[in-house]
Amino acid sequence: MAKKEKTIVGISIGDLNGIGSEIVLKTFEDSRMLEFCTPVIFASTKLLSFFKKQYNLDLNFHGIDSLDKIAHKKINVLNVWEEHVDINFGSEDKKIGEYAIKSLKSAVSALKDKKIDVLVTAPINKSNIQSETFTFPGHTDYLAQELKGDSLMLLISGSLRVGLLTDHVAVKDVVKNITSEVIEKKINTIHNTLIQDFGIRAPKIAVLGINPHNGDNGVIGNEDDTVLKPSLEILRENSKLVYGPYAADSFFGSGNYKNFDAIIASYHDQGLIPFKTLAFGKGVNYTAGLNRVRTSPDHGTAYDVAGKNEADYESFKEAVFSAIQIYKKRKEYKKISKNPLKTSQKKSFSKKKR
Rank of each mutant, 00 (worst) to 15 (best):
S254M: 09
F89G: 03
V219K: 14
I183R: 05
G10V: 06
I210H: 12
A100T: 07
G215P: 02
D58Y: 00
G221P: 01
V219Y: 15
D86S: 15
D197V: 05
D150R: 14
G289N: 01
E98S: 15
F251A: 03
K73N: 15
F280R: 09
D167G: 07
P137E: 03
N259W: 05
D113G: 08
L278T: 09
Y286W: 10
N125H: 12
T301F: 05
G20F: 00
V175E: 15
L208C: 02
S315F: 00
N259C: 08
N79F: 00
K6Q: 08
S151V: 06
G163V: 01
A110Y: 00
S31L: 11
H268M: 07
Q270C: 10
S231G: 04
P340I: 10
I336R: 08
F251W: 01
F349I: 14
L119V: 02
G20L: 00
L165P: 04
I70W: 02
N256Q: 15
T179D: 09
D312W: 04
K176P: 10
S231L: 04
I124G: 00
A262E: 00
F36Y: 14
L16Y: 03
T226K: 14
G209H: 05
S12N: 06
H168Y: 11
K52D: 10
K186Q: 07
N188E: 04
L67K: 02
S250A: 14
F349S: 14
D141M: 12
T301N: 05
R236H: 11
D68S: 14
L194T: 02
S315H: 11
P274T: 04
N76V: 04
A202E: 15
G244K: 09
D86E: 13
S106L: 09
I205H: 00
L290W: 03
D298G: 12
A144C: 11
A43S: 15
F136E: 05
K328A: 06
S106I: 05
Q196M: 13
S250L: 05
D30K: 12
D58L: 03
P137F: 00
V320H: 01
R330C: 08
N177L: 03
S315W: 02
G20E: 07
K335G: 11
K347Y: 15
F42D: 03
K69M: 14
D15C: 09
R201N: 07
N56W: 09
L194W: 07
I195F: 06
N217P: 07
A100R: 00
A288M: 06
K176R: 14
L111H: 01
E29T: 12
F275V: 04
I116S: 01
F50N: 12
D30F: 13
I41L: 13
T193S: 09
A144V: 06
K328V: 02
K258P: 10
S157V: 08
H72W: 11
K114A: 05
S49R: 01
G20M: 02
G18I: 01
N128H: 09
K74M: 13
L48M: 13
E181T: 12
G289T: 03
Q270D: 02
H72D: 13
K282L: 08
K186V: 07
E29I: 03
T7P: 03
T121S: 04
G283P: 05
S91R: 14
K351D: 14
D141T: 06
N125C: 02
V182W: 08
E181Q: 10
V40K: 02
I234F: 08
I13Q: 09
K352W: 13
L235M: 12
G271D: 05
N60C: 13
K282N: 14
E237D: 13
V9C: 06
R292C: 06
